[in-house]
Design a protein around this nucleic acid. Structure first.
Lengths: 243, 243
DNA sequence: CAGTGGTCTAGACCACGAA
DNA sequence: TCGTGGTCTAGACCACTGT
């Protein structure tokens, strides 16, 4: 009974979605202008834009200011593999992933202080990584490492989003906190998504055997493009870690 | 430079957010009516509603049709613990979690067929669970088990969202796929969130040592209320599982 | 410059909740 | 019934992208 409530924009979204999934609108193709579509569906522009926002949230279209609305490539979902990358063939075989890294040194903010358990203002090496897959942003990562633990060159770390250099030597424990939320403005622009599209945010804390935090990573992925996968094997009687 | 773009509703959201975080608006309190707020901020109702949608997405307010907008209780984020519930004190110590379970038997749909690797139409035991924390919905779970594996009584399974009965006897491998997306209409109503609030959706597949899928769980959590936590320990040289 | 999406308005009408 | 939020309109103006 709750399906036929008044919501014209959902009907329109359904119609356009149908045209996309059936192939009448092809990937990469530009949709008619919003005013044109509004006239075609006999609705106002704001209603039509709400319909498009639904499709954008589903990852079916991409809105580009000043150019138009485009059908997104069907993008099989790329994955982020949690823990110590239990290499998933899907992710491992992805060759078209280009990563740009920018590294600087910053003093620890209040938030990073609590994450890394370091004194306020401690120097941290920051790696800001944006990975793109065929031009489409795939993930944004900001990785922080106490500077005395950070290597001189960037190459040794390979702080990739999705897989990482196997066995960072010192980390013995990884804790990942996953969260679904709206993107921050800078995330929205970096990932080329609207503020309506949810992001999958992962805060990864790596600790060494002494309990020292050796890395904090703030990862953000467009929710319509990536899944995160976590696997657990049952070996012996694993005792629950009590803090 | 990108901060001062024209977006009145963000300013308003920021102002109301400030009133909430500073305590001028207390938890549980009802906000002035939308028309009142619109007049107060000298904006139209749709603009004001956009501002409130931002706050709703942040989990700061709750909109109730016909009653008003209410400041949400600061709800420290409840957590879902992945894998074999590495019991987190936070979650484990949560006493105020009430779960309602409804169990039926359904034939496997196309989607469940691929998840559980069973023939189409196989009888499945379905457990539909809605957990509430102090009246606020906390999670929605739909768990499917091949009926020949399902116990007669519901009590043995305890398919809770957040923790589960330790050691379901047969499962040896758990794979959880995490995804951020907009809620389906039924999820939105069950979780008492708008369609704008993102959900953290987890698909959990439990496999026994022979590779048979013994359980598929579709979990949905309101993104503004729960985080999911996954931990990994580094013991020995763990060989990557290749499919 | 023209064409596009992004934001906003002032008002209308409908649906829900509590009297 | 009344007051509330939910949806929609017809148009205006601004910002971005191309020529």
């Amino acid at each position: 009974m709750t399906g036929s409530v008044p919501s014209r924009h959902h009907d329109i979204a359904g119609d356009v979605r149908h045209q996309i999934t059936t192939g009448r609108l092809k990937p990469g193709e530009r949709l008619p202008s919003e005013v044109g579509l509004a006239a075609r569906y006999r609705v106002s522009t704001v209603t039509l834009r709400r319909a498009l926002a639904v499709l954008q949230g589903e990852g079916l279209i991409e809105k580009i200011h000043g150019k138009g609305n485009f059908v997104r490539r069907p993008g099989r979902k790329i994955m982020h593999v949690g823990g110590w990358g239990t290499l998933d063939p899907w992710t491992a075989a992805e060759p078209t992933l280009r990563v740009t890294v920018r590294s600087t040194t910053v003093p620890a903010s209040a938030y990073l202080t609590t994450l890394l358990k370091v004194p306020t203002g401690s120097p941290l090496a920051e790696y800001s990584c944006l990975s793109l897959e065929q031009g489409a942003p795939h993930g944004l990562a900001r990785i922080y490492i106490p500077r005395d633990l950070a290597p001189a060159g960037v190459s040794t770390t390979t702080p990739s989003t999705g897989r990482r250099s196997r066995d960072s030597p010192s980390s013995a424990h990884i804790r990942e906190t996953v969260c679904a939320r709206s993107p921050t403005p800078d995330e929205a622009s970096a990932l080329r998504i609207g503020t309506t599209t949810a992001v999958l945010a992962i805060t990864r804390i790596a600790t060494d055997s002494t309990g020292r935090v050796v890395e904090a990573a703030l990862l953000a992925f467009p929710g319509d493009r990536v899944d995160a996968v976590f696997t657990a094997h049952h070996m012996r009687n694993e005792r629950p870690t009590q803090r």
